[in-house]
Structures are given as C-alpha cells and as structure tokens.
Amino acid sequence: MHGEFTTLGIKIAPSTVWEILKQAGHEPAPERVSTTWADFLRSPADALPACDFIETITVNGRRQYTLAIIEHTGRRIRVLGITAHPTASWVVQAVKNLVMDVEQAGCRARYLIRDRDAKFPALIDEILSEAGIQTVLTGIRMPRMNAIMERWVQSCRRELLDRCLIWNERHLRHALREYERFYNRHRAHQALGQAAPLRTVPDPITDPEQIIDLNIRRRDRLGGILHEYSHPA
C-alpha cells in the first residue's frame, strides 16, 4: 500500500499505513531477514543475476516449467522460456540466448547464481564461462542462498499463479508476459525505495489542492488479478 501511494506521488509515512492496517485488523507482512550470504550477493558487479525454475500445473494436468532470471541490483525479471519438457538442449539454448542478450546489452555480469537442480546440464557452465560468467551453486536445500530469486518465485505464485486457473502453455505464456511487464514497470519494490526496475519514483505532490481532489485511475490486467494505479494522462 505504501508503495502504491509513492507511485502516485502521494507522500505518506510507512507508520501511517501500518496504523491504518492495524485499525482495520490486518497483521503486518512477515519481516524479510537479511543474511551474510545476502551481503555477499551485493558484489561490485554491475549486474548479479540469479536463475531458477518455477513449476506450474495447468488445468489439463500438464506440468509446465518456467525458467526465469532476476538481476540483483535492479530487480529486473526476465522469463527466459516455458516448456513442458525442460530437456538439456532446451536449457542450453535458453542460456545461449541469455548470453547473447547480456553481450548486446553491454552487461558486466561476473556471476550467475543457481541451485543444483538436475534440469541444469553441465554444459551451461561452460557456455557461461566462455562469456566470462562464473556459476555459483547454492547449497543443498538452502534456498536462502538464492533468496532474491526465491522471493520472486513466491511473489509470482502469491500474486498470479495461485489466483488464477492456467489452462495451457499458451495461457501461461500470456499470464507471465503480463506479470513480467507489471513487475518491471509498475510494481513498487521496497529494496528500490518504492521504485520499479524500469520506473523511477515520481516527485511527491506538494499542492494541497491536488491531494484533496485526487483523480486516480485503475487499470486491470489479466481480468483484474493485477491492478495498476495512475493519474489520468
């Protein structure tokens, strides 16, 4: 809520939001705990990406696997691909596409964090190494070592996948494309000072008359599962 107010240029203290929610009987969200591993992840590299698979079961009972990558510094998420059969060749091609995108963007990523999922073939480490990117493996059953990626997976499930029925792969692609755009361009991030990866925080509204007479419009995405609030153009 505090993030949405900030996005609209309305300056309000987080404690005020907390008081409003408390009076309404809503408990605060669980606190995010930082660790020494998270401190390590704040490396001097311009971009420190991490990747992971997220599994989804569609209405027809088929399992779909989504490979996504997130940048630690800017929190930008990219969905690299969706498939029902995450074969070694499919994963290798997705990583090759990623390397080409990194080179074209002039990114200076030095590490890529991933878990020890068997869906990742050993060949991808060689591909990344040739591009100057070292693979960092997390410990066994230690999701905290890939905390930022795991947090995105939880956000994606809580805000999207657990709130709608995914019919098939095509529907999943559409839903994740919309969520990727929403996450990168609108959704407020506490770690970014309520900015979004591809959106800065607007200047706060200082005119009292504008605060009193606000005209806020809501744009619904995916049938109302996602909401975007903005001032009229």
Rank of each mutant, 00 (worst) to 15 (best):
H2L: 07
L8R: 02
G9K: 09
P14R: 09
S15K: 13
W18A: 15
L21Q: 14
Q23M: 12
Q23V: 09
A24I: 13
A24T: 15
P30M: 11
E31L: 15
V33A: 11
T35R: 14
T36A: 14
L41I: 08
S43A: 07
D46Q: 12
L48C: 12
C51I: 12
F53P: 02
F53V: 06
I54Y: 05
E55G: 04
T56L: 00
T56Y: 01
T58A: 11
N60Y: 07
G61E: 15
R62T: 09
R62D: 15
R63D: 05
Q64E: 10
T66K: 02
I69K: 08
T73E: 10
I77K: 07
I77G: 04
V79Y: 01
L80G: 02
L80N: 00
G81I: 03
A84F: 11
N97A: 11
A105D: 03
G106E: 06
C107Y: 14
R110M: 07
R110P: 04
Y111M: 05
D117F: 07
K119W: 05
F120H: 04
A122R: 15
L123D: 10
L123K: 12
L128E: 00
S129V: 08
I133T: 05
P143V: 10
P143F: 06
E150A: 04
V153M: 13
R158K: 12
L160P: 00
L161Q: 01
D162L: 08
C164T: 14
L165I: 04
I166L: 07
W167F: 08
W167P: 00
N168Y: 03
H171N: 08
R173L: 01
R173H: 01
H174D: 07
E178H: 01
E178C: 01
Y183F: 11
R185N: 12
A188N: 12
A188H: 03
H189Y: 13
Q190P: 04
G193Y: 05
Q194C: 11
L198M: 08
P202D: 05
P202E: 02
T206D: 08
T206Q: 15
D207H: 04
P208V: 03
E209T: 11
I211N: 03
N215A: 12
R218F: 06
R221C: 04
L222S: 00
I225T: 02
S230V: 10
H231F: 15
